[in-house]
Design a protein around this nucleic acid. Structure first.
Lengths: 227, 227
DNA sequence: GTCTATAGCATGATAGAC
DNA sequence: GTCTATCATGCTATAGAC
């Protein structure tokens, strides 16, 4: 394998496990069994290396999402696309791809999961912006499928779906029930997110059931003051 | 305000905005208008400062969660606690407290949201372990309220709820629809998560509806190869 | 393309005066 | 408790031989 690829793999792993700022070029070149100067020769800088790590896998992934949504939309004609299909086009590509990509895919998954919560500035923000384009496109599909929801509430719920996806990506390897290693069981995780997300998106908007009308709420709230 | 408190406030803000590794003691002491040596005098090290930032707010927050759950359980007697109440005890305290704590609370919220996805090692792991105790306690409450769910699926769904909470915390300030600044609207966000989570937790386990049986899935999957 | 050597700088921590 | 000065180390990036 070429030095350039070994550097990408090593950077992918270490950025995912320890974060961007906490990973030094020395760590990366040591793991890649390459020379310290090779990063700047092949990529120009540490930040450019991060962007290269993203570019390698993100482009095909987001293209697959959008192509699948396009296919569902032309299939539906003038009707809105079914909610389950929108969610599938949004969530299935990342999980499926990660398994095709093997070990590197799992590292990338963790890195992407992290970056949703803790953006790396300024290099990682191009990723967030690129993802925003995909999100906007899916938001209009959701809006047609769930026309009764207000725009604000729809946006919030999309973020809840993104949250479940990102959190599973970031923690998948740590909890076996979140991300088993075998290929067939991987769909268990995807299906869990899909079922949860579908029910959540379909929930009626803002039932006034919270806070629960119960004496315990007032009691616990008043006693729970700072010591 | 004392130097110690100013250091805590400054560290809270900068760790939240830029991450732990990317924030230097010089950044912190400059913002706190304190001397560089003051961090090591008052806290001993950068990592100990991070732990102090957590300790200040996390202890009362998790105590409130558990006290509220206790109150609901003794109220319910031998019956399982209603799902809506379990969710309220888990989610309301962090959002309510953040508003009581003002600006510092919002910084802390962002920091906590980040750390769920990108743990800071080794100092930040004590926070994760402390949270795990709370999670296990709530998991058994969820298990009684939703006895038909398998343990693995229940764990996965709890993580989806945690994900929505953490994601909103990390991004709340960036999207106005996720976290408006006014006090009354803050409950809109909490209610959105509660409705979404309640519907998601109650979803039937694993309907075999995915992948959607549609010619578009196969078409998009096969065409979506890497360039 | 790969390597050594190093420039130039920022970092966390500490010693010691006041 | 607060300050200045500084140590020792690690960092990214680059120059230049091969």
């Amino acid at each position: 394998m070429s030095t350039k690829q070994r550097l990408l793999d090593a950077a992918e792993q270490l950025f995912a496990e320890n974060g961007f700022a906490a990973t030094s070029l020395r760590d990366i070149t040591a793991l890649a069994e390459a020379n310290l100067a090779s990063v700047n020769y092949h990529f120009g800088s540490k930040e450019a290396l991060l962007e290269a790590v993203f570019d390698r896998r993100l482009r095909p992934l987001n293209r697959e999402r959008l192509e699948m949504l396009d296919a569902f939309e032309s299939e539906a004609g003038d009707n809105p696309v079914e909610l389950s299909k929108i969610l599938w086009a949004f969530l299935a590509p990342p999980f499926r791809r990660m398994y095709e990509w093997g070990e590197g895919g799992r590292h990338f998954q963790q890195l992407v999961g992290r970056i949703y919560a803790a953006p790396i500035r300024p290099a990682g923000e191009t990723f967030i912006k690129q993802f925003e384009l995909v999100r906007i496109r899916f938001q209009s599909a959701f809006h047609q499928a769930l026309p009764h929801l207000s725009t604000d509430e729809l946006t919030r719920r999309m973020h809840h779906v993104i949250a479940a996806m990102a959190h599973t990506m970031a923690w998948g390897r740590a909890f076996c029930c979140l991300q088993p290693t075998g290929r067939p069981e991987s769909d268990v995780v995807l299906q869990s997110i899909l079922s949860f997300a579908m029910a959540g998106m379909r929930a009626p908007e803002c039932q006034p059931i919270f806070p629960p009308s119960s004496p315990a709420v007032a009691a616990a709230t008043s006693s729970g003051t700072d010591r």
